[in-house]
Design a protein around this nucleic acid. Structure first.
Lengths: 235, 235
DNA sequence: CACAAACGAGAGCACTGCTCTTGCATTGCC
DNA sequence: GGCAATGCAAGAGCAGTGCTCTCGTTTGTG
């Protein structure tokens, strides 16, 4: 039933699907996920509201598609920063990837909110989002891995009650690194995105003014937490 | 216009206002903010939907009231942990306050999402929420302040480009502490809530299993970032 | 007592997600 | 090439939402 399901109709289908997503993303950029209305999308696309349901069985399915796209877009940005900094010192690469993630988040706050905002509890992220979501994390991990290969990673300490958990984590997604760095990576990943979230969601209003410098400094601290030696020696 | 504006009607007003908030909070606990419907609240309260608008001019106003309550509830929890650990070593107090915040968040995820989730950009938090929101932060800062008084605070380094910002921050809300700790406090505050957010919002699914131990360890790392000496010497 | 303010209820508007039915166009098979 | 099956768009419709307006009624004050 696959293998280029024959001709014009199929092409039209993927084109229209793309057009719906595109228009939805456009509205998302300026309104936020809560205000995204299927009917409005259909209207500006010149189709009946009921027609959209041929392409996305429900509003949530559209949102899920947008979530995956957002994860991928962010992951791509992070990977680009990773490659753009190839050869640089681990501390600098770390900063570059973090800045790229932050830049993406600030440029598309609503999409950031979509993926790192509040998925209501009870809502289990569809398994289809997992690989896309992992890309950012793996970009960060790649920096750590490179530092490790170059012998420039200070493996952090690990308390006894986390040993088995660390072993499991490491086996799951960093089998080539010392187990102790796995929890540190996860912690730093969460803290970084949390930090960015605070800025994007306006929690820094009237608290942090010079956000670029503040972010640079904080991210250097995070680097130290995973065992990297930050580029900015002064911080 | 204040000073007990006379009698039974006023009393009824504050009672009904409270009942609305209570019912709204109940629905919030099991459904999430997006699903909270004024009409539904009115229905279970046995009043016409239009009557609610006598008490809250709009749905957003109701949500704002709930946000303030949530901030206060969380702040209260943090302050209780602070007082409950009076006299203990700074590292232990830090852990206690952090655990309290996390516990609150896990117990009322929807309320956590309401305050630290995704306020759509374009939405400036009403000034009325600020003092309530600050309570958590100040509870954390109190631990740092105590450590400083006891001479147990290792003041973190500060890069040159953050000096003026640090001075401004310190003047604004920690005038009695060395300026360098101010950015560290803000960073750690954001990172802690971000970490908790990741857990509450399900980002740790299939990533972190032993979340208590993981949190304990990570929070000890955060303590070190602000210059505290964590209780858990092993971590 | 009279008057004004506060209040509750109901109807109504514009909007939403989603379903169902009806008719048309395209597609693939014989 | 002709035809049945399928894919698709459109419209009407349901149940629900936030919010407004009006119209009596209740309440407190001069």
């Amino acid at each position: 039933m696959t293998s280029t399901p024959h001709g014009a109709r199929a092409r039209a289908r993927i084109e229209i699907t793309a057009a719906i997503k595109e228009e939805a993303r456009r509205r998302l950029a300026e309104e936020g996920a809560a205000e995204l209305s299927l009917r409005a999308v259909a209207r500006t696309l010149g189709m009946a509201s009921s027609a959209i349901y041929r392409y996305f069985p429900s509003r949530d399915d559209l949102l899920t598609a947008l979530i995956i796209d957002a994860y991928d877009s962010l992951g791509e940005t992070a990977e680009a920063a990773l490659q753009g900094s190839a050869g640089a010192a681990p501390g600098e690469r770390w900063a570059a990837v973090c800045e790229a993630i932050r830049g993406w988040a600030l440029a598309q706050p609503h999409e950031y909110a979509l993926i790192y905002g509040s998925p209501v509890p009870g809502y289990a992220a569809p398994a289809s989002t997992v690989p896309a979501a992992a890309r950012v994390a793996f970009a960060l991990i790649d920096v750590v891995r490179d530092a490790h290969r170059a012998g420039e990673l200070d493996v952090p300490a690990l308390p006894g009650d986390l040993e088995s958990e660390a072993a499991r984590m490491a086996a799951d997604f960093v089998p080539d690194l010392p187990p102790a760095v796995a929890p540190a990576c996860v912690a730093v990943w969460a803290q970084l995105l949390g930090l960015i979230g605070f800025e994007v969601f306006g929690q820094f209003t009237r608290v942090v003014e010079e956000r670029d410098a503040f972010f640079r400094h904080t991210v250097a601290g995070l680097a130290r937490t995973v065992g990297l030696r930050p580029a900015d020696a002064a911080s």
